[in-house]
Design a protein around this nucleic acid. Structure first.
Lengths: 344, 344
DNA sequence: CATTGACAGGAAAATGTTTTCCTATATAAT
DNA sequence: ATTATATAGGAAAACATTTTCCTGTCAATG
């Protein structure tokens, strides 16, 4: 591997000149430029990124903290992040969160690797996030983790409205007894539940707690939750599941009991993951632009990183701070497939 | 951020001593050790990994080149890699291959980031791989890409035998007219096809080319391929799809035509991705230990990296070279679910 | 008692860059 | 013609480490 010294010697110039030609950081005469370029070409020289990182204090790396890469949703966000990052010449380094991994741990892991920014796909407490934001200078962004923490930018959808829309769709189809299978994090346990309740209230339909079942977000748990709902005396005619995975489990359960979807029970999911199109009947759901969320998250954090880089001047600093307050809300949409049916 | 100099000053020792205490690279008196540890504790000092990388020529980073992170199979392998790597204090940096990305490109990308090793989940030509292996000193490993290239270690399953077993299962159930939907890479286009042919030949069943349809590996394309097969005059009673995704598409197609699985046509897939358990009827398939492949791949390449690190001595060099010839074949298994039925 | 060896610990080189600081030359202005 | 200024380009410092090389102390051995 050639280094800058060897190029300098070969081109008959100083190290500084080679650096200047490579970065265009100061004008160099055409004559010397050519000599440098030739040497670079001949020896196939690439500046050592580690040495650059050391002195520039910039790794061109963004860290992604994700609860589980093998989860379809997260994998898609990740793919969006990677695509956008790669275009901007940033690398993506991942950190899977395991249940046992202490909160502070992965932050440190990322910081020790000196990533230029962190994208969070994993839910933390607001205190912890605020604490991090205060003590660290590394930009942080929440993607599809709808926590409102001051000065932490966010990219995702309007969870409450989207859930509202899902339930409104069921109501519009004539359903009045609408069950809910919900989860335990902010989006799945609070916001989408809020949307559900709002929709019912707007139509003066009473909220019946026995129709609301909480469970962890997985196919298997969705099955269990639906099993519980089906044991009810006054069984709902439709169920809103706050994630497609839960919905697919619920669907499985209903079919196993010999009931029909949507004839006996209508079902609506949330997220629009691939599985939903494959399952029979095909799942009606709320579409989130999953990959897009990843792309926008990457775009935004890179923007923030680069603004921060030159944020000494007044104007730039303002730009930078504005970035921190960004809440990028992407559009969701209802996708009607085969699991919802009108009711007389 | 404190640096080693500040620790040295605070502890009243030299920089060298701090380094020695941190790394245990040379004995230091208990007295000084304590002073250093105290200073480290108080200032919460973490050695700068970039500076270490620069001098040690080791980044503790492994690069993963993957065709598509959002693909369930790859995401699962990745999760295995990450888990094992994290335990060994390695970071994982991903490089998604886009159709337009030239072959040499992502190798360079990884090399420029000075990863300590590369795990390939993406198929290359053997020439390109051999070329890379010759010119580069960075360890390379193929995970679930069953190419036999000299001195490039491999982790995966025995593709031919596994496919053989799938088809033998169909034959065992009485099927004689067995279709094949196959792909275009080595595993999906050559080895699993070989297994299919071998199984037929062993039972002296003629191989009928019109029953073999090639298509890219996706649900949608599997649908198309099956559509083609269903138009045949003498339609097969069973079809082997070399991937679950294709099988799920094929299943969709059959059901859309008003036919029943497995009553009219039996179906067997390959890989055992999550979708297969969710689809109805549930997919009979060949199980690959997907996450395990990732874990073992990471374990092996880290092993090779560390052996290479001290491969000056004779014994160690031999160990290192032995690592390069490793072919780790993990066990597959047949999973009987609901898409294969016996035939009188 | 003198010499050797072991050993703790410090100074400085080395890793490969970028950038500041300085010098010499050429151009413009007086 | 002389001074001021701009500018190209080189030397060296800086980034945060590890490690080599060296020094001084102490114990052991002849």
């Amino acid at each position: 591997m050639p280094n800058i010294k060897m190029i300098a010697r070969k081109a008959g110039v100083s190290i500084s000149t080679v650096s200047r030609v490579m970065n265009g950081s100061k004008p160099v005469s055409p004559e010397l430029q050519k000599r440098v370029y030739d040497a670079v070409q001949q020896m196939n020289y690439k500046p050592n990124s580690i040495a650059r990182s050391l002195i520039l204090k910039k790794t061109n790396l963004i860290g992604v903290v994700v609860p589980d890469v093998s989860n379809s949703f997260h994998a898609q966000v990740l793919s969006g992040i990677e695509e956008c990052a790669a275009q901007a010449d940033y690398g993506v380094i991942i950190c899977n969160v395991y249940r046992n991994l202490k909160q502070q741990k992965y932050f440190n892991l990322m910081l020790e690797r000196h990533v230029d920014g962190i994208i969070m796909l994993h839910e933390n407490t607001t205190e912890e996030l605020a604490e991090f934001q205060k003590t660290s200078t590394t930009p942080l962004l929440l993607a599809s983790v709808p926590l409102k923490v001051a000065d932490i930018p966010f990219v995702g959808i309007d969870e409450v409205s989207a859930a509202y829309e899902a339930v409104k769709h069921l109501i519009g189809k004539g359903h009045r007894d609408i069950g809910l299978i919900y989860g335990d994090c902010t989006a799945l346990g609070i916001l989408r539940v809020e949307g559900y309740k709002n929709a019912l209230k707007d139509q003066t339909i009473p909220v019946r707690p026995e129709l609301m079942v909480q469970c962890p977000c997985s196919v298997a748990q969705g099955y269990q939750a639906m099993d519980q709902i089906l044991k009810l005396d006054r069984r709902p005619t439709a169920v809103f599941c706050v994630s497609d995975e839960m919905a697919i489990g619920a669907l499985d359960c209903i079919l196993d009991k010999g009931l029909k979807v949507p004839d006996d029970i209508s079902l609506i999911g949330f997220d629009d993951i691939e599985l939903g199109q494959v399952v029979r009947p095909k799942l009606t759901t709320i579409h989130q632009p999953i990959k897009e969320i990843g792309k926008e998250a990457a775009r935004l954090i890179i923007d923030i990183i680069e603004k921060k880089g030159k944020a000494a001047a007044g104007k730039d600093l303002e730009d930078y701070k504005a970035g921190l307050q960004t809440r990028l809300i992407l559009k969701h949409s209802l996708i009607e497939r085969e699991t919802v049916k009108g009711r007389a």
